[in-house]
């Protein structure tokens, strides 16, 4: 199948300077499993554009590194 890569604005951002190495809390809690730890930076990031803008990721982050924005199409 012919394919193209798709660039998407994702709603959840992580302040890498704050994000603690070894922590996985937001990744563990996201109902949609949309967050992951980046293999290189070792920081949390949104790996798929799947989000209910519900907030457990931000609510559980011990250092307030997570910001939940409203998904672009709804904003």
């Amino acid at each position: 199948m012919a394919q193209a890569n798709f660039r998407a604005d994702v709603p959840v951002t992580v302040d890498e300077a704050k994000c603690i190495d070894g922590c996985t809390l937001c990744v563990d809690m996201c109902p949609l499993d949309s967050l992951a730890i980046h293999p290189e930076t070792k920081k949390a990031y949104m790996h798929v554009d799947e989000c209910w803008y519900c907030g457990p990721c931000a609510a559980r982050c011990p250092v307030d590194a997570v910001t939940v924005n409203i998904p672009y199409l709804l904003r």
């Binding site: 996201c30 109902p31 949609l32 499993d33 209910w52 519900c54 907030g55 457990p56 609510a59 559980r60």
Partner: peptide, 12 residues
């Protein structure tokens, strides 16, 4: 399929 602590309609 999610994590029981924050899953479902009562996630928050």
């Amino acid at each position: 399929k999610a994590h029981v602590r924050h899953s479902g309609a009562l996630a928050m």
